[in-house]
Design a binder for these strands. Structure first.
Lengths: 213, 213
DNA sequence: GTCTATACTGTGATAGAC
DNA sequence: GTCTATCACAGTATAGAC
């Protein structure tokens, strides 16, 4: 994977402009996808000239690559902290909450990731099969141990995680649809979603005496 | 919305080729997005020449428009049938199953839709705010009546629907990630998902005597 | 109706002045 | 280090032969 980042990060102004460009690129790439974005758009968004962008980065692909690199770190971080306290149900629900907060606070990152996966993950497939799979497998073993101890209801850990990812990221990736369907008064959609998702996963995770439903 | 479809559908061969082109375009658009796709790719996929494609459709956008039109009809159809039998919980779970089957059988349509929404729904925003919202609101009133009758647990109907859409479509839109994380033996992922999602929503929907969790 | 050849436009990237 | 001007190419679409 060509991940040729900007080699210019020495002076204060250089770091400032690099940040400025990456922020603009995140805005553009997350909205229009990689192919749908042009350097002109990024330049306009950043308030810089096109050649100036290309002075700081070795082309459009390089900017995209840097964004993806940073993204993966940010994205895996909440999952890494899963299981550091005691109560398993609360622990998983806290992870749900954290993921939903990320959809609210970093929707552009979520959409950048979604765009990449949707189109076959051409640039991060190796990371998915490597670091992401390792971390997920590790957390699935933890969840399985909670199941074996009877602390949460029996379920498939991998699919539980898929459900958490999909329901929370939906509020960032499909925000246009969410707002269209909710119509007026969408300002509290994240609060309502929080209550709903907490209820959803708590229902499923809480063990019951009568196992059969 | 420019929805200039092919006006050529009279002879047998014309209908055949139109279908052939639309199928090829669905394959390409769903994989690379609108901007990421070229007429060359569609032509190659369809086994036709580029000018031949443009003889049948008034440009790239027209093909995309026809696909989106057909998609919306297909996509809303399962939701329209929600509530035609008796048991509310089974009814909603059947809808979940139907949606999951669609992710399995029509992943390209799902990704085409996801691509469009993700990038702000430039071509179907009106349909989301109109037909989709109307239908969703109607079904939410139905769900609310089930809640009022105590037949399912109290919850937010809109967010329940969001959860159903996101969890089921995840298996089409994020299939690359699902397969990467599951690693080997991913052939039964839809069966496992089916069991998991049925359990997930059934847990949430089934009313309890003791209301507090 | 379908093809070959080609015009036109948008976009990524570079050269060279300042 | 940053800009203006420009190149080179890919991609949409059309003209005209057959």
């Amino acid at each position: 994977m060509a991940r040729a980042a900007s080699t210019k990060g020495n002076t204060r102004i250089q770091r400032q402009k690099t940040t400025q460009i990456l922020d603009a690129a995140l805005e553009v790439f997350s909205t229009y996808g990689f192919r749908g974005s042009t350097i002109d758009q990024i330049a306009a968004q950043a308030g810089l000239s096109k050649p100036n962008i290309l002075y700081y980065f070795d082309g459009k692909e390089a900017i995209h690559g840097v964004l993806l690199d940073r993204l993966l770190h940010t994205w895996l971080e909440p999952l890494e902290h899963l299981g550091e306290s005691e109560n398993p149900v609360d622990e998983i629900c806290a992870y749900v909450t954290r993921k939903l907060e990320m959809s609210r606070d970093y929707p552009r990152e979520s959409r950048l990731f979604a765009n990449e996966i949707l189109q076959g993950a051409p640039n991060i497939l190796a990371e998915l099969q490597g670091p992401l799979k390792s971390l997920t497998d590790e957390k699935c073993r933890l969840i399985q141990s909670w199941i074996d101890a009877g602390e949460i209801a029996p379920l498939d850990p991998h699919h539980l995680i898929f459900s958490i990812w999909s329901t929370t990221q939906h509020y960032a990736d499909f925000d246009v649809q969410v707002k269209a369907v909710l119509g007026a008064s969408t300002t509290d959609r994240f609060e309502t979603a929080q209550t709903h998702l907490d209820h959803l996963f708590r229902s499923m995770l809480t063990p019951r005496r009568t196992d059969g439903i």
